Simulated scan of single mutants.
Amino acid sequence: MSQKGPTLKNCVWDILKSADEETLKEMLAISELGKKYLDIRDEKYKEEKRNLHSMLNFNTTKPIKYDLIKTIIENMNEAMTEGMGIVDKFRNMDKYPKQLQECVKALTLALERKAKDLKDEEWKRSLRKIREEYKNIELTCEQSIKLEEIIVDLLLDAYLRTMPKNDRENIVKQIIANLQKYASMENIDLSKVNVGYILTHGGLIALRQALGFKFHILTAIVINSIWNYTGALLAGSGLSLAVNAIIQRVVATVLGPLGWIIVIISTLALVSKLLNPREYDKYIPLVVYIYILRHNIHKTIETLKDLPE
């Protein structure tokens, strides 16, 4: 990790270098089109998507990794500063941790409105606590890693909390089963941790604190559990046509189930509403990609699949 200033480039360049070219193309497409690219249900932008893919796949002008990474970073910076004018020049918005702090603030405020609609006081208190905790931060690349985790946590937690009750309960059962298998492998005692209760009342952040696992392990377990459940529903045609379409499209991308998670949590209504003046729909999904690449979540999920029943 670079010891220079905590710009987006210094904090994520090496991580993006670890990605293959197809993943970078997908990231570039999101950085260019945002929700237009992610939301396959929106017919209005199909031509725009086709044109972008044509540009990325045209053999004689095949982009090299350096140019892909450079453009992704430029687009992410623009998404957070475009239209803000001189104000941001005095707020360190060229710094990656500051950009992430802005995302945390926007997400917690939006989710708090959702929690209010659901009359979920516990969730509201949790969101306010997170916003206050990250109100003042050190501007370092190390701090940005923590903020990436918080953003992924907020999105996954929001997805679980806003699911239909029956689906949420079934996924919680999957999470409990996967946690027990992992705990058994690592000789971790879960007897004093009521996973279901904590997930229902405190959410993922509270569960992570109770377990003491490395964050990316719990993230991988949650993602794997969601995918196992939705995959089973897909096989049994239990999902709506719209959700089926999303899964079938994203499962074909380089990240498979992980790509599906990125699309699902990034097209939550709350993210779509966080557009002006910052383009969060172009920025936040790429933070999730960066987090997944940084912690090699693909490998962790494969390890979980190999755990004995």
Rank of each mutant, 00 (worst) to 15 (best):
residue 256 G to I: 07
residue 18 S to P: 01
residue 305 K to L: 13
residue 78 E to F: 14
residue 113 R to Y: 11
residue 48 E to Y: 11
residue 104 V to R: 00
residue 242 A to G: 07
residue 24 L to I: 01
residue 170 N to Y: 06
residue 115 A to E: 03
residue 110 A to T: 03
residue 235 A to G: 06
residue 262 I to W: 00
residue 29 A to Q: 02
residue 213 F to W: 12
residue 309 E to M: 15
residue 160 L to Q: 04
residue 205 I to E: 11
residue 293 L to W: 01
residue 72 I to R: 00
residue 232 A to W: 04
residue 9 K to F: 06
residue 224 N to W: 09
residue 110 A to H: 01
residue 214 K to D: 15
residue 98 K to M: 14
residue 174 Q to Y: 12
residue 207 L to H: 04
residue 155 L to S: 00
residue 111 L to G: 02
residue 47 E to K: 14
residue 235 A to R: 08
residue 160 L to W: 00
residue 115 A to T: 10
residue 78 E to V: 12
residue 121 E to Y: 07
residue 230 T to P: 03
residue 275 L to P: 01
residue 234 L to S: 09
residue 45 Y to I: 09
residue 130 I to Y: 06
residue 295 H to N: 15
residue 121 E to W: 11
residue 144 S to Q: 08
residue 299 K to V: 13
residue 123 W to V: 08
residue 124 K to L: 12
residue 229 Y to H: 14
residue 13 W to Q: 04
residue 268 L to R: 02
residue 36 K to I: 08
residue 111 L to E: 06
residue 174 Q to I: 04
residue 278 R to Q: 12
residue 170 N to W: 03
residue 193 V to N: 09
residue 10 N to R: 08
residue 137 I to T: 10
residue 276 N to L: 12
residue 7 T to K: 04
residue 117 D to Y: 13
residue 251 V to T: 10
residue 81 T to D: 10
residue 171 I to F: 01
residue 192 K to S: 09
residue 230 T to F: 06
residue 17 K to F: 07
residue 297 I to D: 00
